[in-house]
Design a protein around this nucleic acid. Structure first.
Lengths: 324, 324
DNA sequence: ATGAGGGCATAAGCTGGGCTGATGAGTGAG
DNA sequence: CTCACTCATCAGCCCAGCTTATGCCCTCAT
């Protein structure tokens, strides 16, 4: 079984245009003119023209129909532009995240967040915040729940996000999202065709592909399966979520992963979700703040972006933010 | 109401490293060594070292801890690398799609696909196909159902994908996915807090933000609401899904969009899904082939990648591929 | 202890992709 | 007819990033 072939295929940079080129293409699509797009991006018209041309040459595709009164995307160009938009959106999330990570301690909004939130949710919120309040400087510190609590109580952070069952003492909290864990297998695995849910007891006795002891996901899984005899010895223990996903995709066995981590793989059917019954595999993601210090100003702005509609059946928590 | 501020913020290329840099970072993360990553990417060690350094300078973040016996990611670096991975994955999808689009007519596998499939699903399938069968040359033609049927019947395509309620005559079909349409509103909209489902009749009388007449999504919506008095005059009619999303996010009103198109926005709570009752807003996405010409070879490989587990309650269609 | 080997940094020199600015040509409106 | 808009082409420049060569640091095995 040779499943360590994770070597990245070819250099993408040779075939995929750079971000500036993709942004230029999006601008052309939106404005209907090379010159207009050039103006928007602050470059000269010949630069835009040449750049699009070189993208077309590299891709071997006609992207834009030029005419003396403007430019429109070709059919191929429209499709390519849609794919390009996904790259640019991911780049925007990267940029927003990096800016927050770099943010100085004297930012107007200092956020301390657990890893899951920082990795998957916060960049999107920051983009939204940037649109609504363009000049809110945000700084981000990522760490575990203990660290988040420390920062908040020492007034070194204005708003925190934690994951897991317990709210650290001294903090008020509101659930902003739920991280659902799902059982996944590769498309070729027997469970992939399974219609009837896997009982918790069976899951507990099945060898899984997991991250090492100590990861948040694994803790939830441990707790959830404790009443069913606890977790069986893992089939494989890997160091990163990425490695786990790769192993599962290649059919090495089932795993339990955050829905946030496998959204794309599920959509593309690279992974298959297996229904499970008799066990509640989810954990709350909460915004937290020092008791009594109800978030105001920028912190309140961000918090309001994260508010999600109350999930069906999730009446345990209060419907509005409530002090703990 | 100033809702035409869709102007792209800043040039991302200035702050987000280029794809080669991001791939290099991923390789360093995976291999634990600058030199090793350099070797994998076919560049010299000083090039890798300098490149990482320049990324760190540009981002204002320490990404890598160098030591005389290797390099490990810093905490910031780990987070940045996670965000970088999303960009690279989007770039891989772009690359796979572009390669298929460019594919010559004499490719071993000629695919004709409807726009929704080509845009959202096919790139992922192609990536998976590339991993499993690295030297299958795929060509892609995107168009509507009629065009897909024509290509297949003229033997100019080996496998097709269509969306919508009807299978074109002369074709065998298998459902490979469902495109669920969801009612969405911006986070500030009154419906965002709504717990009780919106009845179909109310949806039918509400002004929505939609694409122009003729779009696939709108046809489904039209048909689904016909028994409830038909669609009310749209609040706003826009030319692209992107424009519709932007308007909805900015709170202009509700819309009905493909779940495939709004996955990211839902995850980040930029959009909120509104439950609806009394109307079935979904359409099947089907693989199709000329009756009797059951897919074989590369077409069969691709088809098997697209097979999804039978959805709960979806017993109407056969569970295996079946001739129409 | 000492040399080999792997890891990283620095320096010098080259190359080319991509930019600007000027210019020309096609099209449609007034 | 002329203006205003579009895009293409050309010449020249610049700098980001590459390679090769070298040196330092650390560890491990002899």
């Amino acid at each position: 079984m040779s499943e360590e072939h994770e070597g990245r295929s070819v250099r993408l940079g040779d075939r995929v245009p750079d971000l500036a080129g993709l942004q230029l293409l999006l601008a052309v699509a939106r404005l209907g003119s090379l010159g207009g797009a050039a103006r928007e991006l602050g470059i000269s018209q010949p630069a835009a023209s040449g750049r699009i041309r070189s993208m077309e040459r590299r891709l071997g595709l006609a992207l834009v129909d030029r005419s003396p009164r403007g430019s429109r995307l070709t059919d191929s160009g429209a499709l390519v532009t849609d794919w390009a938009r996904r790259i640019v959106e991911a780049a925007e999330a990267f940029d927003a995240g990096a800016e927050a990570l770099r943010g100085r301690r004297d930012s107007r909004l200092r956020v301390a967040a657990s890893l899951t939130v920082a990795e998957y949710l916060l960049p999107g919120w920051l983009i939204a915040l940037r649109r609504g309040r363009p000049d809110t400087a945000v700084s981000l510190q990522a760490g575990n729940s203990t660290m988040v609590a420390e920062r908040l109580l020492a007034h070194e952070a204005d708003l925190g996000f934690v994951e897991g069952p317990a709210v650290p003492p001294g903090l008020g909290a509101a659930v902003v999202a739920q991280d659902r864990l799902v059982v996944v297998v590769g498309a070729g695995h027997p469970w992939a065709k399974r219609r009837r849910p896997v009982p918790a007891a069976e899951l507990a006795t099945t060898g899984l592909i997991l991250r090492e002891e100590g990861s948040g996901t694994r803790q939830v899984l441990d707790a959830a399966l404790a009443p069913h005899g606890g977790l069986a010895p893992p089939l494989l223990e890997l160091a990163s979520t990425t490695a786990v996903k790769a192993a599962v995709v290649s059919g090495a066995g089932p795993s339990v992963l955050s829905e946030l981590a496998v959204g794309e793989e599920l959509a593309a059917h690279r992974l298959v979700k297996v229904p499970v019954e008799g066990v509640r595999l989810r954990r709350d993601l909460r915004a937290v703040w020092p008791t009594g210090h109800r978030p105001t100003g920028p912190a309140r702005d961000l918090l309001s972006l994260t508010r999600r509609p109350p999930g069906p059946g999730g009446a345990a928590q209060s419907s509005g933010p409530r002090e703990a």
